[in-house]
Amino acid sequence: MKGRNATQRDFINGLLFSSPWILGFLAFSVYPLISSLYYSLTKFNAVTAPQWVGLDNYKDIFSDPLVWKSLGNTLFMAFVSTPINLFVALLLASIVCADFKGRGFVRTAFFLPSVIPMVAATMVWIWMFDPTYGYINNVLSWFGISGPAWLMDAHYTKWALVLMGTWNTGTMMLVCMSALQSVPRSYYESAEIDGAGKVARFFYITVPCIAHVLVYQAILSTINAFQYFQQVYIIISANAGVKGGSAAGGPENSILMYPLYVFHNAFTYLKMGKASAMAWLLFIIVAILTVFMTKVTRKVTENAGGE
């Protein structure tokens, strides 16, 4: 139907319209990715030119205990924080899906934390986690619990981060909410006629209907956990200021996240080659997770017979 000229014209138009993004893609994604791979095989700081060292950086990574420590911390965030966040988000979503007075206010209260600039939010939490003057330990003391030192105690630092994370599940809640609302009413009605209780309805109707969304969110949250570091950077700088020290990874390096260690290697220790090698390792992990996410989400969607 379309003439050759029209096809050609469409091609040129398409290319022109998307050209800003294509240029940006080359400049801000392709170029950095490739040069990062090259840098990972060199040794350099911000000033000197890169010097070829082969696989030395990678050998260095595998023998550096802090790399493993930081990877462990990041894995903790990925696999402990993610299920908790998903649970909280689903709970909040079910609440705001119910019909009650003040529902709009409650939804706002649950979602608002997600739009607050991360720096400001993190600072409030540092203050609330203060072992002596913070609100959290004071509220705990009402119940006779003497709270831990949270961000100052290596046993609790990561749990403090997990707690902070649950406060920030508003986006996930909204996604779960619109998934819940897309479950056809009639399913519930016929189940109710068949005598299914609330719990049974939740597990046999709700969960399968929104499984593809839950899986997608779970993996997305795992991927995000591999990028988690600005919060810990702020926490550590704040505590370092207070203690006059310069602990790079928090108490006993308990919140030295992998990306934070990359950042320190690059901009604090100026080992940019090593930082690049670490970054590439991270890139490979995230790439594998992404492919996995795409495959699993598709499979779950097909099984649910949806879309």
């Binding site: 994604s29 990715l33 990062s36 911000a46 990306p259 970054a279 890139f283």
Partner: peptide, 15 residues
């Protein structure tokens, strides 16, 4: 591109 960690791109961009 949404999945490319900034951790990977920051060193070359800085450079």
């Amino acid at each position: 591109t949404m999945m490319i960690p900034i951790t990977v791109t920051m060193v070359p961009l800085y450079k």
